[in-house]
Design a protein around this nucleic acid. Sequence first.
DNA 1: CGTAAAATTGAGCTGTCTCAATCAATGTGG
DNA 2: CCACATTGATTGAGACAGCTCAATTTTACG
Lengths: 244, 244
Amino acid sequence: MTVTPGQSAPKTGCSNCVMRGLGLCTVLIDLGWERPYAGEQQPVAQNKTAFAARRTIFHQNQTLAGVPVICEGWATSLMKLSNGRRQILSIVMPGELVTCRLLFERQLHLSIDAVTRGSYRTFDLAQLRAAMTVSPDIFDKFLLSYNDERNRADQLIADLGRRTATGRIARLLLEIWGRQEKAGKIDGNSIEFPLRQTHIADATGLTTVYVSKVINGFRSGSLVEFSDRSLKILDIEKLRQLAA
Amino acid sequence: MTVTPGQSAPKTGCSNCVMRGLGLCTVLIDLGWERPYAGEQQPVAQNKTAFAARRTIFHQNQTLAGVPVICEGWATSLMKLSNGRRQILSIVMPGELVTCRLLFERQLHLSIDAVTRGSYRTFDLAQLRAAMTVSPDIFDKFLLSYNDERNRADQLIADLGRRTATGRIARLLLEIWGRQEKAGKIDGNSIEFPLRQTHIADATGLTTVYVSKVINGFRSGSLVEFSDRSLKILDIEKLRQLAA
DNA sequence: CGTAAAATTGAGCTGTCTCAATCAATGTGG
DNA sequence: CCACATTGATTGAGACAGCTCAATTTTACG
């Protein structure tokens, strides 16, 4: 049996999707794969766990009972090295799995740190896997997400290994821009951007001091503008050139 | 139906494993998951395609008909950037899938370059996926491999972002050492090591010139010894310290 | 409104790169 | 099986991207 969420049953939301019996409708909604029925209530925040800004939500090497999805707020997945340094592996935006790896493994090999305040919900691994077994489409969606994640990781490797500070930062901004765009979250020519320079530094393998200098370069070149936790890209072409 | 290759049918090799009908026995053998039956012939080299050293085997953005497994020889998966630089994402050793991503996606987003001469065999994606559907164990093995790959990618990100040249190189040597160890391929205290300094440079995001200097440092500190495409680790403890 | 977190700025330093030349090894064709 | 051609390794001198340290200012938030 094949179900295409948001296609075969667009009118009724998840109410008659195959996942219903599994209690997984909310997964799809939280993951942004299924819009709630127009007349329906937004899924209640029950089960949701709130987290404060800048807290570590899950610790490196922790074994998790389920698969967490960030519902609101931004987070990062990062590695904390023995030398005390930290490297951000990915930015986790609302509606995303913390790592797709957790679909196939219970142990977290990295740390999840909150950027902003927010909330997450944890889904049962067995149920998710059952869902994948039942519906090839669900399965494919998860695998696509996994491949996506992997793609970004590979990009990041190339960036860190072979690109200059300017290029790395430009690419980070563009990556986030692109993801927001894909999610239809562009407002005029600006997006929500709650990352602080510390995060940019940890994501690009640079120092906060140097990040500040590069970004001020961008600003004085009228490429970007930051204000109130949002980012406006003024000259996306030039930024793309720097990111090339 | 559950089959555990190499456990439930260890005596007969793959001859009565569930994959037989699918013609996939050789996959398991080539992947090192199944030993051929003692009395059996080694799987014939038919279907194998040879490649020369230093050649690009598959090109970035190529769409592949199947999933290639390296049978003999070493290769690298790498990204070639627009600025002409190259970054190695992973070292592919004999018996490994070129990338697990290809299990779920036909397009190659990176380039596969040979290190040594060798050969590969390509498996049909549909068949592999059928195999995964039939046997949860096969499925799990592939997913474990995928997670493994992912793990190394994450490590690499942390290395490139937050570790010094010495640390990166030490870790690369130890990673390869560890993988050979796992495969039971340690001979005395040395392993096969066909990588040239160019590869080490491209894998660690450094310059060949600097790699040479660091490695000579290791040599004069009596940590390692290179000879005839093999690596001997003389002081693994000290090397681990450098890699910390 | 006060305190903690974040950003900025400047001066000086260093790990790694570039360039360039030389030497060693490896492979190839005759 | 040798000689040449290619690829890889080494070495040194100089340059610079990005770092450290440290002080100051600005912003965020309970």
